[in-house]
Design a protein around this nucleic acid. Sequence first.
DNA 1: ATCCTCCCCTAC
DNA 2: TAAGGTAGGGGAGGAT
Length: 688
Amino acid sequence: MGSFNDYMDLKKQKEGDQNSNQKFLLDTGRISNIFKGVSIYITGFTNPPSSVLKEIVLRNGGSVTMFFSKTHVTHIIASNLPDFKVKLWKNDMIVTPQWIVDCDAAQSRLSEAKYILYRTSENIRDMMTSRVEVYPIKNASKIIPETTSHDFVGEFYSNSRLHHLSTSVSELRQKVSKLQNQYHPSYIPINKSQTSSVILHIDIDCFFVSISLRTRLHLRGKPVCVTHAKPNENSDSYAEISSCSYEAREFGVKNGMFLGKALKLCPNIIAVPYEFDAYHKASNELYRILVEKTPYVEVVSCDEAFVDIVELVDVTDEAAIKGWVQELRTEIHSAISCTVSAGIGPNKLVARMATRAGKPNGQYLCYSESSVLDYIKSQPLQDLPGIGSSTFHKLESKSYKLCGDLLTKTKSELSELLGPKTGETVYNYCRGRDSRDLVLKHERKSISVEINYGIRLETIKQFETFLLNLCDELEKRMKNENVVGSLVTLKMKERSENAAVEPIKYMGHGICDNVSKSVNIANATNSGKVIHSKVMSLVNSMTLNPEDLRGVGVQMSKLKEASPVISNTTNVSKKSVKQKNVPVCKTFQCPVPEFLGHKNPADVKNIIKNWCESPEPFQVDADKVDEYITDLIKYGNISLVKELLRLMRKQLKVREAPEWNAVFNSTLQNVQRKIHVLFNGILDMDNL
DNA sequence: ATCCTCCCCTAC
DNA sequence: TAAGGTAGGGGAGGAT
């Protein structure tokens, strides 16, 4: 009986291992098969810890088991063992964790000889080699499919770092919005510009590289970059580097640089592949931690966020703020095993600029008026957000280099040079001023698909086919977001007249002229077929040579909700209600909700007026009022909601009773929450 | 003045 | 070989 139970336990345990191993691989992906056939059992304290060893082995094609079985386990991993275990396992392969680390570093299966913990049996190695086959690393290089092929679009997007970067922002916005409601159910995304803020900018240090180094201990401290090209390639590579370590940056390597150029600057740079799923997981975890603390979180990108922490810290105690942020950074680090840097300031601009001073793996607080001015004026203009190379060159032409250089310039001088808006923004930024609120609730204005890589076509017919694939992809995305649009824009890159037919970069677009053309659609749509027909009408209205096309994009704008939350029983559609401005429902076409058997608004008002005059508020009554008002909001009768709130406020003002004020505030909060959920807006309290 | 269209610029 | 996307702000210049 006992042995049967043991057997069943063993079996269950085995299945458990398989499940957890598989789940793990789904999360992070496999990078090689060097440990194929290897099944490790980790015992005792090890360095690196067992979790890291497990990850390395799984990612390299091996398996990990949580129980010891003579037939199943090929390697026992231990740093030291008690005597009885040495005796127990005298015929088994016991190696130090370093074996795993070194195999991973070399990306090949090294002999265990140098790593055997206790040599208890002379023929262990013979035994091992007969039991385990060594597989070479699989080198699966793929060929880019034909532009018109059905796989082209999907294949491209699954490998495009920029696509992952862009879409991760939209996805995170959705997720963060969910988390905000989950962790802070009564939170209302009101702009908080009227009150003072403590803005925290948080940023994962060289995100993609950091993720790769979590499991590549041997690469830490070395110049590393993330790119599609394989390591040790010749130095002529035109693969773009999407992220590089600080060690690489010291050689002048930058994000976006071609690998070939980076190799010239830093011949020892090591290239590692993308791990999109792992980035995804880490970003989710980062945002979960932030929103757990406060709903005032703005998604900037997969590795970067703004947080208003004014309600979490004592504004007057800078040391306490620093301590709080330090703790947060530690928490994030232990959750995702990547270091993060942070900047703290009175607004988004200063917070973001301060992060630069904190990087890497540090933080910088710049809050008081004088320290803000001091710090900002020493910063290069190019580091201001919104100042890219083009704007910088305009400023440079006047030999302005630092923010401080612009302090003597007038607003109109800058507007003349940079345009009215940009001029004023730069004028304010140089003084550390920034009036932008955190964007807590985001409304999409356009949605698009665009591919500027690998486009090689011969005929208009092929172009038409490719466009249909693109429009189908667009349809997918629009349906996923439940939107329809009524303005279609076609964007194209055409090879410049004197540009080579094939650019230096394999399948790149080379030097191009950009063209775009748009057309309105009478009925908003998200049908790929309809969009495609509109796009074709644009194609036919212009003269182009398909052979010169190097990039194509289709954008939909003038967006609306595809199926309104409130159907045609009301004239208030979700998108017609903007934040801060809930329009009054003028024509009231829906059935009136009942309040204690009364339908006539005048009667209802009377009852509520009397209630407000009663000696004491009871929760049951307050709940009934809330319920009725909620119905009104659902039906879109915002004007009556406003009337009732006004009435209550007027009545209760006279009484000046705290318990009644509490009733009013809770009712108001309920209204705001419902309006937010249903209409994505808030009630304008000033005009109540 | 304000809008629209077709760009360019910027950020990650 | 190599995966140069995407959303939003804003400007120039013409139409209303």
